[in-house]
Structure formats: C-alpha cells, structure tokens
C-alpha cells in the first residue's frame, strides 16, 4: 500500500520574529538576515576583478543593463500589474537621447546618462500615458507595438541616422568605471525598489494591481500611480539604454530589437517574479548563455523563448522563490 504523505513547511523562528513586531536580539539573527544581502553585493562587486578577458568583462556591463530592465519589468508586472512587453522601447529611447546629446552637443557621459534617464523616462511615460487605463492584454499589446513602430518610423523618415544609426558616441574612460558604475546602479536600484514596495506607497501600488476599484474609492487616481511606476520602470530602462550606447559607441534601431524585450521577461520568470532579486539572478544566468549562443544567430531567441514557455507551463516558481523558501522554512514529510 502506498503511504499517504505530504510535505509540511514551517517558518524558522528567526523569520517569524524579524517579520513580526518582535525585535531581533542576537548577532546570529542579524547575520541570518544580512548575510544573503552581503553575499549578493560582494559577489557582484567582485565580478569585474575575477572575469578573465576583455570579452567577458564587457558581458558584465551588458548583464547590468539587462538587470535594470528586468527589475523594471518585475516591478511593473508583479507589484503594479502592468505587463510590459516593450523593454526595447525604453532602451531605444534612452539610447537615442544619450547619443544625440553626446554627438550633437558634445556632452560627456556623466551628463548624458542622467539626462537621458530623466528625459527618456518622461518621454516614455508621456507616450504610454494614453494606454495606462488599460489592463492585462491591452497594455501588453500596446507596449509590444511601440518599439516595433518606432523602429519603423526611424527607418521610414530616415531621421536620427536612419538605418545606419548614430555613430561616434563617446565611450567610458576605462573599463573599471564602466563596470562598477553599472553594477552599483543595479544594487542601488534593487534595494531602492525593495524599500519602495514595502513603504506605504507600495501598498497603494499593490492595491492598483489587485483591487483598483477600492483604490479609486480611496480618493487616489489610478492613472497617477500607474504613471509614477511607469516612470520608475522606464527610467531604469532608459538608464540602461544610455549606458549601452556609450559602451558600444553607437546607437541604432537594433536597440529596439527583441532581445531587450524578451530576455528581461525570461530572466524574471526564471529567477522568480515578485522578488526583485530573482530577475537580476536570471539575467546573470541568461545573458552569458545568450552571449555563448551568439554564434548561432537567432537560435538564442528560440532558446529563451522555449525556456520561458517551459517555466511558465510547468508553473515553476523561479529560483529565488525556491531558495528563499529553503532558507526561511523547514520542510519535512508528514503522514496524512
């Protein structure tokens, strides 16, 4: 006869105490909470030191850019309920603005990147504003169209360098600055966003996602809060785009390419949506693989699409969610 049993999960004591109203007392408990964070930060900061060869060092920066996009995607999708399929649109907007500022006005990256971030985010938010009342499918559809259509417009009107793009964009002074700036940006964005979603305003965002009627009845404008979140997410994307332009010293319509829309989504699904760390981990896994596959051309897109489908179909929770559970909970089999 088969023994009937099921898995039982119990929170570890420290987890319960640190989340509730109780104080944390000992240094062990502090360590329990801080170690994962320290590990993550130091690991990321050590990467540029240990990477062999120029090629893989460049990959670190690219991973950082994708991480910013993926953070934005996770934030919008899992904390506000807006599924954006248009990561490439943010990258392209930020990239072109930075390229123009640099080549036409001679501004250095220290200026172009922040300006492109803010102006780009403003532009994206403005352009997406009419679509904000939409939910679910509609929003996804429209965001999917934006990058494709913008690429078409640039091609058709032959503006902004047309199909050749804008060349001769300044690069970073050296690789250390290039890599550490982006890694530190990723870390700051990660912890900043985590803080944000746990503040009171984070509850408003969640309300917008799960219960927008109640938010309206609470005298809050849904569109206003959605705009704020779109601004944040597109700022991350535009920052990434501006960075990318300065790394490749070139800006072109390939920035509206699919990779930028699909990898962040795949990274989020693989790493664990709704955790904010998960998407970053996902990028650190996926982007290097994608670089390895570059020789096979578009096969890499097929590859992440299939991974994505597999993760979604098998309802996988994602790596980080799994790891967090193992870290915070005991598991044991009990007889039923």
């Amino acid at each position: 006869m088969i023994e009937e049993r099921r898995k039982e999960r119990l929170d570890r004591g420290i987890k319960v105490r640190s989340e509730g109203i109780y104080a944390i007392s000992s240094w062990e408990e502090m360590a329990y909470l801080l170690l994962p964070r320290l590990f993550l930060i130091s690991g990321m900061l050590a990467l540029p030191l240990v990477m062999p060869g120029l090629y893989w060092q460049r990959v670190i920066s690219i991973v950082g850019i994708y991480s910013l996009l993926a953070l934005g995607f996770d934030f919008l999708a899992n904390f506000v309920g807006l599924v954006s399929l248009g990561g490439a649109f943010f990258i392209g907007t930020g990239g072109y603005i930075a390229a123009i500022l640099n080549t036409s006005f001679g501004l250095p990256p220290v200026v172009t990147i922040p300006v492109a971030t803010i102006v780009g985010a403003g532009t994206c938010t403005l352009l997406l504003y009419p679509c904000l009342p939409l939910r679910g499918v509609y929003f996804a559809i429209v965001t999917l169209m934006y990058p494709l259509v913008f690429a078409r417009i640039i091609e058709a009107l032959n503006i902004l360098g047309g199909t050749d793009g804008i060349v001769g964009v300044a690069s970073f002074p050296n690789r250390w600055i290039e890599q550490y700036c982006i890694l530190i940006t990723v870390i700051i964005s990660l912890f900043g966003l985590r803080r944000l979603v746990n503040e009171d305003i984070g509850l408003v965002f969640r309300g917008v996602k799960d219960n927008d009627q109640a938010v309206k009845a609470s005298a809050l404008s849904i569109n206003l809060y959605k705009s704020i979140t779109v601004f944040i997410a597109s700022a991350l994307g535009c920052l990434g785009g501006a960075y990318l332009v300065h790394i490749y010293m070139w800006s072109g319509i390939s920035q509206f390419a699919l990779d930028f829309s699909i990898i962040p989504i795949a990274a989020t699904v693989i790493g664990g949506g709704g955790t904010l760390v998960g998407p970053i981990l996902g990028c650190f896994i996926l982007v290097p693989i994608s670089e390895l596959l570059r020789a096979f051309g578009t096969l890499r897109i097929v590859f992440y699409s299939l991974i994505l489908v597999a993760f979604i179909v098998f309802r996988s929770e994602g790596i980080v969610v799994y790891a967090q559970r193992r870290y915070h909970q005991f598991e044991r089999w009990v007889r039923v």
Partner: peptide, 22 residues
C-alpha cells in the same frame, strides 16, 4: 492567467519565427 497566456503565446511565436530565421 492573462499574463502567462500572453507571455507564453508570444514566446511560442518568437520561437517559431526566429527558428525559421535561424
């Protein structure tokens, strides 16, 4: 699950199209 439906079908479409290209 609206989000999953969109992402899954979009990913399938991408896989088919880019597969042909490859």
């Amino acid at each position: 699950m609206a989000t999953s439906e969109i992402i899954a079908s979009y990913a399938i479409g991408l896989a088919i199209l880019e597969g042909f290209r490859w």
